[in-house]
Computed example of a mutant assay.
Amino acid sequence: MPEIRITPCTVTGLYTLQDIAIRSYNDHYLYLWFDGGDWYLDRSFSEEALRDELTDPNAAFYLIYADEELVGFLKLNLHKAFEDYPAEEALELERIYLTKEASGRGIGREVVKFAISIAAKYNKRVIWLKAMDSSRSVDFYEQNGFVKCGTYTLPFEQMKPEYRGMYVMKVVL
């Protein structure tokens, strides 16, 4: 397994984050969209969108390196209520995106462990997330202790309807 390093990303790293976000998204998700992902990439990874998120005190971004090569990023929402858990007890794992070359190498497992360590640092009782029901990521999260606890449908008209379904998953700490 490669040597993994996960470092915080602030607004000074906006363009590095933007680059890895677009590269990793393009590697895996363009087939979901009628427009090849243009709408989503602009909505989520434009300079303005990332600057807004990077300056949000509730959002925490991390850059993921494997053997010193930038291979992905992690986004956590540090205080986001879930089910019966108030915001001070719940952390949302919003995104783990890895490049195609980094996938399947054990990196994601290390990133989940890292997210759990961040949750522990903030005395969280639960980590929750949404995973596409058509994606292998559901199996990945189950292998890492998460359980399905609900469903959600993405409201994006630009997305092909057969890919809008999501599982809501959680791990209680």
Rank of each mutant, 00 (worst) to 15 (best):
G72T: 04
R43T: 06
C149M: 02
L154P: 00
P8E: 13
F146A: 01
V147E: 05
L76Y: 03
E69F: 12
S44N: 09
N77H: 11
D38C: 12
L154Q: 03
Y25Q: 08
I64V: 09
F156W: 01
N26Q: 14
V171E: 13
F73W: 10
F34M: 10
Q18P: 06
S134D: 10
L93V: 03
A59D: 00
S24T: 10
T99A: 09
L93C: 05
I20V: 14
E83F: 12
A81V: 02
V171P: 08
R95W: 11
D35V: 06
L14I: 15
S134G: 03
E110M: 13
A119W: 11
L30M: 11
Y29W: 15
F34I: 07
R136W: 13
D19V: 07
A90C: 06
S134N: 12
Y29L: 14
E101N: 11
H79T: 02
L17V: 14
F73T: 00
D139V: 12
V126S: 07
E69D: 10
A66K: 01
G36R: 07
M159G: 01
T151I: 04
E69T: 11
T16V: 15
L50F: 04
L93I: 03
V11R: 10
L74Y: 07
E53D: 06
S44P: 01
E53G: 01
N123S: 15
N58A: 03
L54C: 01
Y15V: 09
E101A: 15
A59I: 01
K160E: 04
A49D: 00
T55W: 02
L74W: 08
Q143H: 12
Y62S: 02
E68R: 08
S135F: 11
K80I: 05
F114A: 06
A81M: 05
L98F: 09
C9R: 05
R164P: 04
V171C: 15
Q143D: 09
T16N: 11
Y62C: 01
I6F: 12
W33F: 15
A115Y: 06
K113N: 13
P8G: 12
D67G: 03
V11F: 13
D139A: 14
N77C: 10
R5Q: 14
P161D: 04
V172Q: 14
W128V: 06
F73C: 03
M169T: 06
L129N: 04
K148N: 01
A131G: 05
E157Q: 03
M166S: 04
